[in-house]
Design a protein around this nucleic acid. Structure first.
Lengths: 346, 346
DNA sequence: CTGTTAGCGCCTTCAA
DNA sequence: TTGAAGGCGCTAACAG
């Protein structure tokens, strides 16, 4: 039989209340008494029953999720996943509030973090923007003892407790390897091949990191692949379509395209229209309705993906664990870089 | 405030005990009374608090995991993951018993299933062998109302409630696509390329399915790739090494190797020794200590993997849900076909 | 400083 | 067929 607070009380010769005070580190216990109780706890190998504790406290974990009101499929999907968690909240003892903020706006994010701080939730998850003022706001939350998880985009060297997202440098490297190997056959002649890169903005960290990883691998392992200057499509389908169409027109020998941001609908449209003699090899990020179809149709060759559902569930698990001072299972919380070919689509 | 059994009792004008009887479908309630209670439940939108219920029952979920005592790294890792779950069992209200059975032995598996049935656990997970007597034993468990999950290897068209493992046909297809694309460049000349396949045994379903997927894609999309007769290494490192060494010696023009089973240590040793003019392209299954090193060293080009930790955690979650008659989150329980290049190693 | 007591939401005797 | 009362393991007033 697992030991309970009663057993501790008996062995230590104190009352339940005192045991509880010690267990929860509350003041008002003499040092000697505390010692006796802690001894009993250790000797019994006691572990508290969290479910019972939460029942007694009628506790619900109140979390705030701050999400950019971006209208690309990935962010919409992410928000959808959080909504799903909200729907399940009654079963999971959570109370999740979703806060929308304008995208790419550090000040708005800071304001949202401040607002969250004011209501003292049990935890906060947010899609970070890598800016000093955001880092400062995060530090204030930490001072207040509020667990924090960054989602999708990290805030390194900050006081966040955990990052629920992929390693974007590794993702870029993976894209680079795939590009290099896939190109090797049909495209790479004596004079090498040319590759275009479509990003959202070089201001956001994930995009910079993906490009960095990609460029590194290409330079090291595929020196005869030439990368054109980055196109910044601001994750906007219309802009992306124009830029890709232009690039294909000006540069007839583009053999590959790496789309490392969102807004792939525009890219796909441009590719569908510009049917040249030989279609370029395309690697894109995020499995959405449009990239899925493009992959199945052979317009896109590979999709790198981060599982938004996993990220959201992981963020919640981690916030709960941090709120309770419990350890997390690192292996369970690692967000994979999924590689999808048309053959392993879920 | 969430409605409780008290609210139901008040509205229906009955006692808590009666409410409980209705909630748990126990006999001893007049039809009219039952009707009143059910009406109150519906009108309140009541959902029971599982944690409180389990506390009151001091319930622990007793599960049996039947695992083949295979000595390859993957099975050892799988067992390790179950051990991890056993270690966490006090926190998760589970009581997991691990039963080892000789590998590839349907009768032993049937005996283990019978033994499990005898002790009436809350659920059973097992690595299936695709045989009629196993299917029959599974049916007996289902008759007894014991939830069942197949792990890693499925038992299709049977009475198992869930399969925690990957789609092996899709895995084979994925390997085929990668092989075809990777080969296209450096190897595929006018006269095509030759590929060897190393399997454990064509008697186990996963291996058959992987080969099927692989062959299909190669035949359809890469007709000038020629697949040699399958080598069955029985997942034995020593045997595998001999077979691969032999094959490389006899067939100097082997351009690629697909290792779809376990026992990759032997494969790797053979490759290290047989340094020909140009090393073959290698795709293997399961990320283990040895395949990881081989991938990093460039001896293996890609590893397809199933996350054993995820499979075990998923099996437990599903068994719990089935035991409680609750739905499962399909997206969370889907086991991915992970593709690892040296760039996205965890 | 310490103990008593009454719950949290649900289940389970036992008695009526 | 129904209800009253006690308890699961833990917490939180409120007294001493």
């Amino acid at each position: 039989m697992k030991p309970t607070v009663h057993d501790i009380a008996n062995i230590a010769g104190v009352s339940l209340a005192t045991v509880d005070r010690v267990l929860n580190g509350r003041p008002g216990v003499r040092l000697v008494t505390r010692g006796k109780v802690e001894e009993a706890i250790a000797s019994l190998g006691y572990v508290r029953d969290l479910a019972a504790a939460n029942l007694a406290k009628s506790r619900t974990y109140s979390f705030v999720f701050i999400l950019p009101a971006n209208d690309n499929s990935f962010m919409i999907g992410l928000t959808e996943e959080v909504r799903g968690a909200v729907a399940r909240s009654s079963f999971e003892r959570t109370d999740i509030r979703i806060v929308d903020v304008p995208p790419f706006d550090p000040d708005a994010l800071v304001a949202a973090l401040e607002a969250a701080l004011a209501e003292k939730p049990a935890g906060v998850a947010f899609v970070a923007i890598d800016a000093p003022e955001v880092r400062a706001a995060a530090e204030r939350l930490r001072q207040a003892g509020i667990p924090m998880v960054t989602l999708v985009s990290d805030l390194p060297d900050s006081s966040r407790d955990h990052y629920a997202g992929i390693d974007n440098i590794a993702a870029g490297r993976t894209a680079g390897s795939l590009m290099g190997r896939f190109l090797s056959g049909p495209f790479l002649g004596e004079r090498g091949a040319t590759v275009a890169v479509l990003a959202g903005s070089m201001l956001v960290r994930d995009h910079r990191e993906r490009l960095e990883g990609f460029s590194t691998v290409i330079a090291q392992a595929y020196p005869n692949v030439h990368i054109l200057p980055v196109l910044e499509g601001r994750d906007d389908p219309v802009l992306a379509e124009t830029m890709i169409a232009d690039a294909l027109r000006r540069n007839a020998d583009i053999a590959g395209i790496y789309s490392l941001g969102a807004g792939n609908r525009g890219l796909i449209r441009a590719l569908q229209k510009a049917r040249g003699p030989r279609r370029p090899l395309v690697i894109a990020h995020e499995l959405t309705a449009s990239t899925r179809v493009a992959l199945a149709d052979g317009i896109i060759d590979a999709v790198l993906n981060q599982d938004a559902g996993h990220e959201v569930r992981s963020a919640i698990r981690v916030l709960k664990a941090k709120a309770d001072g419990l350890p997390v299972l690192a292996a369970q919380e690692r967000i994979r870089i999924d590689i999808f070919l048309k053959d392993n689509l879920p």
